[in-house]
Simulated scan of single mutants.
Amino acid sequence: MALRFAVSPLWETIAGLRVLAAPGLSPVHQRWIAWAEERLLPLGADPSPLHDLATRPVVPEFLIPTPGVRSERVEVEIDAIAKATPERITAAVDDPRLRSAPAAAITAMQERLRAVHDAIILPVWSRLEGVLQGDVERRGRRLVEAGGPTVLAELHAEVSYRAPHLTVADRTVDIGERDLVLVPSAFTWPHAYLRDSPVRLALCYPAHGFGSLWERSDAPTNDALARLVGHTRARLLCELERPSTVTELATRLGVTVGAVSQHLGVLRAAGLAVSRREGREVVSLRTGLGLALVQGEVP
């Protein structure tokens, strides 16, 4: 078993639609739900099979391809849906639109996915990604310290692992030689969700810190934050609401690149920020804990 992590904006889009379909089951997302429902109104009714498939008890595997890298762009994920063969589609779901014209139905779903993502996920993606990447960093350190079986045992109450079998709720699969990709999600709670494919397995689970995503403090916290972590680090945490390079941060803060690097090292060590490589650059982003600290929600 090769165990790794991935962050999937496509899955957050699908999972967000599932939350909106049953809003009463997700009290921690009520602020986001009210906002997202208003954002979706201009899109009108879904003419594609997307809503019906996304809100089924089990989402068809071809609709949510598992990322091959840690952080994949949503455009790449949505484009990958078109690679599913008609046989694979019809084997996964019985829908007259997919039986009669699978290519047209897939195209319609891709267009709807892009519109939905742009409406309800993209505007809050920096906040979501901070929580998701922070969870990956947290569990990645645990993986190094204690190994894969321990990480899986600590992942979720519905998850258990006894080589070579993985059990999620009442479903057990033989992992075999496949990759097992752990995908944190802000919208999966209270359950874990297994995505099974011939190449790799994906296990979606509630990300650590998702519960404070939409909470806001009415009192200004910048002064208190500066007293706690220092003026420059407080400004840095505020700037890290979106992925940024060291050079970008140094320019916005008016300090040297070396100073930003040192402060980022301290924030990463405290679990307040994460950094990752994107091509030739390294970008940083605050974690869910960093966001809560900026908003004054950490006692």
Rank of each mutant, 00 (worst) to 15 (best):
V255A: 01
W214E: 12
V76L: 13
T232M: 07
S284M: 04
A259V: 10
R142I: 09
A250C: 04
I14C: 10
R268Y: 11
P49G: 04
V124S: 12
E12P: 14
V59I: 03
L41P: 03
S71V: 15
R276I: 13
R112L: 15
D94N: 12
S48M: 14
T13L: 05
E248F: 02
T188M: 13
A80T: 15
A105S: 15
E248Q: 14
L40F: 02
I121D: 04
R138W: 15
G209A: 13
L272I: 06
D218P: 13
I14V: 12
R200T: 04
A202F: 02
P47M: 13
E241T: 05
A224Q: 08
R88M: 07
S217M: 10
E248V: 06
L194T: 00
S160V: 07
G140C: 07
L128Q: 03
G68Y: 05
T247Y: 03
Q133M: 14
A45T: 07
S197V: 03
I14M: 09
E137H: 11
T90M: 14
L63C: 01
T107Q: 09
A36I: 05
T13I: 06
E281D: 09
D52F: 07
V298T: 15
R99C: 01
W35Y: 05
A219D: 08
L10P: 09
L63G: 00
P27Y: 10
Q262E: 08
V168D: 00
L253C: 01
V116C: 13
F62R: 02
S197C: 02
T13D: 07
R178D: 01
A6P: 00
R88F: 05
R114A: 14
G254K: 06
V294M: 03
P49K: 10
L41G: 03
R97P: 00
N222S: 03
T55Q: 08
L293Q: 14
L237W: 13
T13H: 04
L155Y: 00
P220K: 07
T172P: 07
V173T: 03
I33V: 15
V168I: 05
E215A: 14
G209M: 09
L236D: 02
G296R: 10
G44F: 00
H117Y: 14
E61D: 02
S244L: 04
A91M: 14
V7R: 04
R70E: 12
R70M: 09
L180A: 01
D170Y: 06
L285N: 01
R70Y: 04
S244M: 04
G140K: 06
P60H: 05
G176A: 08
V74G: 04
T256S: 12
Y161A: 07
A292Q: 11
A224C: 02
A169D: 11
V69K: 11
V19Y: 00
E137G: 15
G16S: 03
